[in-house]
Nucleic acid binder design. Structure first.
Lengths: 210, 210
DNA sequence: GAATAAAGACCGACTAGTTGGTCTGTTTTT
DNA sequence: AAAAACAGACCAACTAGTCGGTCTTTATTC
């Protein structure tokens, strides 16, 4: 009656998050999920397929979220704000998936790796496009090279998985707000930046810096 | 006559970079280095020690560089500029080390892991301190929470290892300049930002954006 | 400087344990 | 009754690491 496949996924997700893909054997997964080798291989062709499913679940979600943010807003500033915000939120929702995604993608079999890479690139290009769009409309600083700037944003956000903890000093919302603040500060021309920022950022918890 | 230990290090570094720590067996290392099991275990106590040496080499270097930058400059703005610049350069010098450092640290044995973590934390704290110093002196925006802002900088730079390639579209110097530009743009108060920036950033290759 | 001794560098067959995966059989659901 | 869901003993391949032995370099003595 219980969904064994889901059980295996959750269990292995937690184990991989703790010990890495190669730090966990199929036997360990099987034991921790309260099943058997037979149970495992009934639902997954191989350990590698399990790894792929984890990757795919996550990247598919992120991409759809970004796409929604892209469609529902008109100005590049609003778009990048929405993308960063939803993207950062993901790190609270999908923490274990993400750890696996960024730590273990090396070990994906070529056929799987290619699929993941494609979706990942699409997401990356969406961010690049928004930046370019913003530059062309004159909202964003034209001096910035799109790729480097885009990778800066991606790096800043992606790195969250290395340090974010639910019970840490900052909530995921606070992180999202600061990161959008930082991003807009380097994207928007300095003249525009301070004045119009006040409308966008409702500076919630910042004043506790003594 | 050749330095076998160094040969093993370089070879395994390249192999780990390509296939990950667990994707490469000691036998493969031994074969690719043109030596034997005996040769390997004469120089390294275990495969785990090899992993540690790679980690330690890199983090020790980075920390010393940052420390130097910290001492040789007085103002926080100059410090953060120097730190980012030298830090980004490292990604050209130590690419394989860094891949291993960020991908495989999960697999360090506890005793080794503790050592690395300490050095890594020291480096992180140096960046936090510079930001805090800048806020206290009034150079940097006081609204920003130190930790989140610091992790943004770290993430932005650290992520380089995922995408930088020597024969890519941008040199490591270009990346370093853009990243310091971005960082100063969100650290410095908006009023200061544009005017004083022109002195700091000699905007070299930016005008090729059509 | 030749002879000898000692230490370090290196070799490779071997082992004990673990790994992902299979296969036959049983139970449970449709 | 047939098909899907699961169990668990089993296996071949591979793993990190060992160990007795050899070669090469260095130190010491005559």
């Amino acid at each position: 009656m219980r969904d064994l496949k889901e059980e295996i996924l959750q269990t292995s997700l937690d184990l991989f998050d703790l010990h890495g893909f190669h730090g966990v054997s199929v036997n360990q997964i099987v034991e921790a999920s309260g099943t058997s080798k037979g149970g495992f291989y009934h639902h997954f062709q191989s350990k590698d397929e399990l790894l792929f499913v984890i990757h795919d679940t996550f990247i598919t979600y992120v991409f759809k979220e970004a796409q929604a943010a892209n469609v529902h807003h008109s100005s590049p500033t609003q778009k990048i704000q929405a993308i960063i915000h939803s993207f950062v939120q993901v790190f609270d929702l999908y923490k274990p998936h993400i750890s696996v995604f960024y730590q273990e993608s090396t070990y994906l079999k070529p056929a799987y790796k290619a699929q993941i890479k494609q979706k990942r690139d699409e997401f990356k290009n969406m961010i690049f496009l928004v930046i370019k769009e913003g530059q062309e409309s004159g909202e964003f600083r034209r001096e910035l090279p799109v790729e480097i700037t885009g990778m800066a944003v991606l790096g800043m956000v992606n790195w969250i998985y290395k340090w974010y903890k639910r019970d840490g000093a900052y909530t995921i919302d606070q992180i999202a707000e600061v990161f959008t603040d930082l991003t807009l500060h380097f994207l928007l021309p300095s003249s525009k930046s301070p004045a119009s920022m006040e409308d966008l950022l409702h500076v919630p918890f910042f004043y506790d810096n003594k």
